[in-house]
């Protein structure tokens, strides 16, 4: 773990994963879908957008960089497209006017090539700061897919865990020191939290990297403190959109891992002022020390506009600087 430590006294800034796609990517993706441009033309634009986001994070002094997922449509569908055994299904609605293509398990899932390593290498080549490897966890891929093959959810999840583990190992071989395995669905069903833990153990057991998982709010108050048994070094949680209500739990049951402290609501156009963000960090520091705290938005920023996302990230960095000066 120590070789993965970032410089400084803690309170490092990072992001949860996705950033908004600039208009030229949205346009290029539709053109590609209609067969008007080829894959390499799309790739070139995705590389350009990735470079712009890495440069932006560098420019505001972000400590732990993400590639922004310019090449991913959806956090589950991206992996489903690359994995044997999963097919892309029809459109289903998630909320409002937002729809996604929900994958279908039609056979045993497997992995015949690395899925994210080339993008990680590209992003890392653009900066001296560490870039996070970003994967979607086995439980969430199962939970957000239809299942026409496996006789139990457990069988499906454990097969997926081996796929995600192999991808994580390849990221580590490529040099990733921070690997995030997102499990936003982990807080959905309390009777399956053991399955989340079991499958995450398959993924992280062979890894030397600093491991992180992002979990959405869900039934947090029921999932905590058992959530701390998920075998990762860090859990990333959303605090801003619940007005830091999670902190109450930490009084009775101390949070023992590194934390990713989400201090900006990703579902609102409002840009939280620096003062409010700084106050959120100060309140959280009463429960978790700075040397175990990463600060970021609540969740991926892909549903915001590019400008909103940049303003939120800039304010997060400013809030961190304010509080760092008080340490």
């Amino acid at each position: 773990m120590t070789e993965n430590q970032l410089p400084g006294p803690g309170l490092w800034t990072t992001s949860v994963g996705s950033f908004p796609k600039p208009d030229y990517i949205t346009k290029a993706r539709s053109q590609f879908a209609r067969g008007e441009i080829d894959r390499e033309a799309l790739r070139e634009l995705e590389r350009k957008a990735t470079r712009e986001w890495v440069e932006f994070q560098d420019s505001i002094g972000t400590d732990l960089i993400v590639d922004g997922e310019m090449y991913r449509g959806d956090m589950v569908a991206f992996f489903a497209e690359e994995m044997p055994g999963l097919e892309i299904g029809g459109l289903v609605r998630s909320y409002g006017n937002r729809y996604y293509r929900k994958p279908i398990a039609t056979g045993p899932v497997g992995r015949d090539h690395p899925m994210t390593v080339d993008w990680w290498e590209y992003a890392q080549s653009l900066t001296d700061k560490p870039v996070k490897g970003m994967l979607t966890g086995p439980y969430t891929i199962c939970d957000w897919s239809f299942n026409e093959h496996y006789s139990s959810r457990r069988d499906f999840v454990l097969d997926l865990a081996k796929v995600v583990r192999d991808e994580a190992l390849d990221l580590e071989r490529a040099g990733a020191r921070f690997i995030q395995i997102d499990e936003p669905a982990a807080s959905t069903r309390m009777d399956e939290l053991d399955l989340v833990i079991e499958s995450m153990n398959i993924v992280t057991e062979p890894l030397q990297a600093h491991t992180i998982t992002h979990i959405c709010y869900g039934k947090f108050h029921e999932a905590y403190p058992k959530m701390l048994d998920i075998p990762v070094d860090q859990i990333d949680l959303e605090f801003a959109n619940s007005e830091y209500s999670l902190l109450e739990e930490f009084s009775d049951n101390p949070f023992t891992k590194f934390i990713g402290l989400g201090i900006s609501d990703v579902h609102t156009h409002d840009i939280e002022p620096v003062d409010a963000m700084a106050e959120g960090i100060r309140r959280s520091l009463k429960h978790i020390p700075a040397e175990r705290m990463f600060v970021d938005p609540d969740c991926g920023l892909k549903t915001r506009t590019v400008e909103e996302a940049k303003e939120k990230l800039s304010n997060i960095k400013k809030a961190v600087d304010v509080v760092r000066a008080e340490l």
Binding site: S94, Y95, W144, T188, R189, C216, Y217, G218, N241, H267
Partner: peptide, 14 residues
């Protein structure tokens, strides 16, 4: 108010 998960589905409600 804000979005929350609709029971145990990957579907949300306000």
């Amino acid at each position: 108010g804000g979005l929350l998960r609709w029971f145990d589905n990957n579907v949300y409600y306000r």
